[in-house]
Every structure is written in structure tokens, then in C-alpha cells.
Design a protein around this nucleic acid. Structure first.
Lengths: 151, 151
DNA sequence: CTTATTTATATCGTTCACGATGCAAATATA
DNA sequence: TATATTTGCATCGTGAACGATATAAATAAG
């Protein structure tokens, strides 16, 4: 017999893993319309917040490694969404800047957040309960983040 | 200026995506010790619950597609964790059975759930708040699951 | 009893994720 | 100033995920 702690239904991790995948799938049709993937959409949001950032800052903001972000950025450069240029003061850095196409995508995707947000609402997830959900996820993320960097 | 709905800090999806990745990373050292990945660990839990299942049932339980599960199972077969044999009554099915090595892994991994579970606890995530978190994630998953299958 | 459709699984191509490693520029140390 | 270390980014290999498509067995329809 399986030990109860191994049951999938008792696991927070499996729920997070599943929810994350299903949400990415929910984004897919809307993003694919503009030739984007979900991680690419995340990069766009980072650059819309603050344009012209080095690779490292983008990676840190997304909590990804540069070896994940570099090829991602190269693909987006090939699509004409952004440019990658050597830093002038520090020649090790690559400064990532949006092109007009990249900036314009904010308009083209304007309806996406609302569409996704409303599709998630249900009896247990409402405008009232979402702040609590955010707090719990932020707590988990902070907890794990510390654990990773402490070793 | 970026529209507020595009800010990463206002996005549930990014939190889920990040939390899911960080938890997988937290599992990594313990699972790697036994030569496993997190998705392979999920397959094990499905088979510990009920051994000798067709590929499709495993995929459904994990909410994955067979084209994700098939190569995963082949790698686990190559590691001697399970066997894949044609179904006798229905020759289209592949029945997946644990080997002794696969069954024994439950003992070898006995401390993993507790280690992960306790590493997630923080002020906003406690034994009291976790049922609420489960309910919200289950709500989101149900919501998205329905939307996917309805079209 | 054929032919058509459905079902179960697999193959293929693309894009992440990430550990391990490499390399060159910048900085610290001797 | 020469050498060592750190920093920023990239390359490589492996293992997911997944959309699109293929194939063969089972079942339904004619």
C-alpha cells in the first residue's frame, strides 16, 4: 500500500505544477496569435516595466538562469522584438532593448491579462481571496529562494 | 508606461510558474540521489497508488499528454524502474508495471515528502492555511481543465 | 463482411529549464 | 604592474512539455 504522504492528492507541489502548466496552456492561443510563447511574454513584461536592461537583470527578475534566458532572447531578437547590444561602460554586459514591434505588442496584447484573470475565477478564487493566495505563493517563493541561495 | 495589469507583481500566473519551478529545484538533490527527475517521481507515485496501468491512465492522472509520458516511461524502463508490455486483451495498450527496483524506491524516498513539506512552511503557509491553498489551486485547475476540454 | 471511425500509443520538431562548464572582461590582490 | 578572482554571458547536453501528425488495433457503420 502507498504511504499517504506519497498520494498525489496530498501534495502541494503537484497542484502547483499542474496549475502552472494549465495556465500556460490557457495563454497559448492568445500569445501564439502574436507569435509568442509564455516565457517570451514574461520577458516582454520585464522590458515594458523598464527598457534597456542587461541579461542578468532580466534573468533575476524572472528568477531564471542566464543559460535559459540567453537563447530565449536570441529567438526574440530573430523575431525583431528586441535588440541585443554590448554594454558601452561594461563590455561584458549585453543590453536588451525593445524595438518598436516589441513596444507595440503591449497594445496588441492589451486584453490578455483580463481574459486570463477572469478565466481563473471560481467559488474558491475570487477578488477577495486572491490577495491571500498571492501572500501564500510569495511566502513559498521567498522560502525556497532563500534556501537555494544559502548554499 | 506599463499598464498595471501587465506588472509581474500583479500576476497570479507568474507566481505559480515561479513557485512550481523552485519546488522542482528543491526536490532535485533528493531525487537525483536516486537517479530520478520530478516528473519521474510523479509517475512513481501514480504507480505506487495503483500498479499495472496503461499509459493513458497515467497520463490522465498527471494531466499530461501521452506524447510527454511515453518518452518519460521509456527512460524509466531503461533505468529498470518499470516494464512496458502490450496489453493482452487490447493490443493497443501498453501496460506499465513497476519492477522491484521501482517498488523499493518508495522506501528509499520515504523522507522526501516530509522534507519538502516542511521546507515550504512560513508565516503565510501553515498547516491551518494549507487546506485553503489546496482548495484555491484545485478550483483553478478544475476551471482550466473544463475550459480546455470544452473546445 | 467491408469500410469508416475511434482509440491507444508513438514520432517529430520546437521551446523551454537547468546543471555543468567555458570564456572574456572587470575587479581585487599581491 | 602581474596574477588571481569575480562577474556576465554563452555553449553544451539532457529531460521535459506540447502541438501536429502518424500508425495500428479495436469498434462502429454500411
Amino acid at each position: 500500500m502507498i504511504k499517504p504522504q506519497f498520494r498525489l492528492d496530498n501534495q502541494l507541489c503537484f497542484r502547483l505544477y499542474t496549475a502552472s502548466r494549465l495556465i500556460t496552456q490557457a495563454y497559448h492561443p492568445m500569445l501564439a496569435e502574436q507569435g509568442l510563447t509564455y516565457p517570451q511574454y514574461l520577458v516582454l513584461m520585464v522590458l515594458w516595466e523598464k527598457d534597456a536592461q542587461p541579461v542578468n537583470d532580466i534573468a533575476k527578475r524572472l528568477r531564471l538562469e542566464t543559460n535559459t534566458v540567453t537563447p530565449l532572447l536570441k529567438r526574440m531578437e530573430a523575431e525583431g522584438i528586441l535588440t541585443r547590444t554590448r554594454g558601452e561602460e561594461d563590455a561584458r554586459q549585453i543590453i536588451v532593448k525593445l524595438t518598436k514591434k516589441g513596444r507595440d505588442l503591449q497594445e496588441r496584447l492589451a486584453d490578455v491579462p483580463e481574459a486570463i484573470g477572469s478565466s481563473l475565477l471560481c467559488e474558491s478564487v475570487t477578488p477577495e481571496t486572491i490577495p491571500g493566495l498571492y501572500a501564500m505563493l510569495d511566502g513559498i517563493i521567498r522560502q525556497l529562494q532563500e534556501k537555494q541561495t544559502n548554499q
